[in-house]
Simulated scan of single mutants.
Amino acid sequence: MPLKLNVGDKLILKKSHPCGGDEFEITRAGMDFRIKCLGCGKEVWISRVNLEKRIKKIIQPEDKK
């Protein structure tokens, strides 16, 4: 069963981005995800399967708690 991932969730991934940042924000959700590096602002497209394998921790926005 897929993880509950929503637009605005912040993720910490196992592998860091080439800029050195490991925190990303989801900007589009679906079969493919668009995630934005919070270090340099670069956006990356990644499939759901690959993203779910790489997630270390999910940080949900404060208003959803």
Rank of each mutant, 00 (worst) to 15 (best):
E25F: 00
K53S: 11
K64M: 10
K15T: 06
C19H: 13
K56C: 01
N6K: 15
W45N: 07
C40M: 00
K15D: 15
D63N: 09
D22M: 02
I58S: 08
M31G: 13
L38G: 01
L38Q: 07
K10V: 15
R34V: 08
L5R: 12
K42H: 05
G20W: 09
K15G: 04
E52N: 06
M1E: 15
E52M: 01
R34Y: 03
N50Y: 12
I26E: 08
W45F: 06
V44R: 09
E43Q: 00
G30Y: 07
I59M: 08
P61N: 01
K42P: 05
Q60P: 07
I55Y: 00
I26G: 09
L5T: 05
I35R: 06
M31Q: 11
L51K: 03
S47D: 11
F33V: 00
L11R: 14
V7H: 11
D63C: 05
K36E: 14
R48Y: 01
L5V: 06
P2Y: 14
I26M: 11
G39V: 01
S47Q: 03
D32I: 05
I35N: 08
H17C: 15
E25D: 10
K42V: 08
D22F: 01
V7P: 11
P18S: 11
V44C: 02
Q60W: 00
A29V: 03
I55R: 02
D9Q: 12
T27Y: 00
K53L: 04
R28A: 14
G20M: 10
E62T: 07
S16H: 12
W45D: 10
P2R: 15
K4G: 11
E23W: 10
Q60N: 01
C37R: 11
S47W: 04
G30L: 07
P2H: 14
V44L: 11
D32A: 06
L11D: 15
K57V: 01
E43I: 05
E43G: 04
K36Y: 07
K53M: 07
E25G: 04
L3A: 15
E43T: 06
S16M: 12
R54Q: 13
E62D: 06
F24V: 05
D32Q: 10
I55G: 02
C40W: 06
I46K: 05
R28M: 12
I12E: 15
G41E: 10
R48F: 01
G20P: 00
I46H: 08
L11E: 14
V49T: 03
S47E: 11
R28N: 11
S16I: 09
R54E: 14
E25Q: 13
